[in-house]
C-alpha cells in the first residue's frame, strides 16, 4: 500500500498540492485532472523523485525521504516521452541498466532480458539501436526497463499521449496485462474504464475520488 499522509507540495512559494491524504491499495488507480493540476507532481511523489514540502509518503511502510533506494525499486516509473527515459544506445544495454543498479548477476540480467523481450515480441530487437525503434516499441522498451527491476507498483505518467492510435492500443494492452499495482496519470479517459478507482485533481486538491462510472462523468462536467 502507498500511504500519503497530509502531503503539501510547493515549488518556491507556489503551492501545487494542498494537504492531501490518500491510501492507495487498489490494483488499478487513475489520476486525472486539467493541465497543470498537479498529476505529474503527485506521481513523482510516489517514488521519491520529488519530496513533499510537508507530510510523508510511505510505500509499504517505507518513507520516501529516508528509504529512497528501496522505494525506487518498489515503485517503477514510466514517463511520457519514451525517448527521454531510454538511456543506453542499444536495447539490451538499456534493459540492463536498472538491473545493474540493483546488482543483479550477469546470468540473471541475460535471462530477464530474454523473458521481457519475448513477452513484447521484441526478441529480435535485442541488439538494435534504441533510436531506430518505433514510438510504440520505445515505450514498450521503457516499460520493460522498469518491469525487469521487479517493482511492486508501476506508476505511469501519460504513457500514451505521444503515440499514434495503433501504438496507443499496444501500450494500453500492455498496461492492462501488468500483474503489478498500476497508478496511471492520463488525459485519455478511454484507458480508465476498467480501473478500480479514479482520483480527480483540481487546483491542488482532490475533487473526486470514486469508481470510474461516477468519477469520469463528474470530471467531464467539471471541465465544461
Amino acid at each position: 500500500m502507498i500511504d500519503i499522509q497530509n502531503v503539501t507540495l510547493a515549488y518556491a512559494d507556489r503551492v501545487i498540492l494542498r494537504d492531501i491524504s490518500l491510501e492507495l491499495s487498489e490494483r488499478r488507480i487513475a489520476i486525472i485532472g486539467a493541465n497543470g493540476s498537479g498529476k505529474s507532481s503527485f506521481a513523482r511523489l510516489l517514488n521519491g523523485l520529488v519530496m513533499p514540502t510537508k507530510g510523508d509518503v510511505l510505500v509499504d511502510g517505507l518513507n520516501t525521504r529516508t528509504h529512497g533506494k528501496d522505494v525506487r525499486q518498489k515503485v517503477g516509473f514510466v514517463f511520457q516521452n519514451p525517448d527521454n527515459q531510454i538511456v543506453f544506445p542499444v536495447v539490451e544495454e538499456d534493459l540492463a541498466f536498472g538491473m545493474k543498479n540493483l546488482k543483479f548477476s550477469k546470468e540473471d540480467i541475460a535471462q530477464k532480458t530474454t523473458d521481457i523481450l519475448s513477452r513484447y515480441n521484441m526478441l529480435d530487437m535485442r541488439e538494435h539501436p534504441a533510436h531506430l525503434l518505433s514510438g510504440g516499441q520505445k515505450q514498450l522498451l521503457a516499460i520493460s526497463g522498469v518491469l525487469v527491476m521487479e517493482p511492486t507498483y508501476v506508476v505511469l505518467d501519460e504513457p500514451t499521449t505521444l503515440l499514434d492510435l495503433r501504438n496507443k492500443r499496444r501500450i494500453t494492452h500492455a498496461i492492462n496485462a501488468l500483474e503489478q499495482t498500476v497508478i496511471l496519470a492520463s488525459h485519455d479517459l478511454d484507458l480508465l474504464t476498467d480501473f478500480d478507482r479514479v482520483i480527480v485533481f483540481d487546483d491542488g486538491r482532490i475533487a473526486i475520488d470514486d469508481v470510474p462510472s461516477v468519477a469520469i462523468p463528474h470530471y467531464i462536467k467539471l471541465m465544461s
Binding site: 513523482r44 517514488n47 523523485l49 533506494k69 525506487r72 525499486q73 517503477g76 516509473f77 514517463f79 516521452n81 525517448d83 527521454n84 527515459q85 538511456v87 541498466f97 536498472g98 543498479n101 540493483l102 526497463g145 522498469v146 527491476m149
Partner: peptide, 15 residues
Amino acid sequence: MADDISDAIDARGYR
C-alpha cells in the same frame, strides 16, 4: 530533455 533524462536515471535506481 536533460532534466527528464536525469529523472529517468534516478527513477531506475542509479547511485
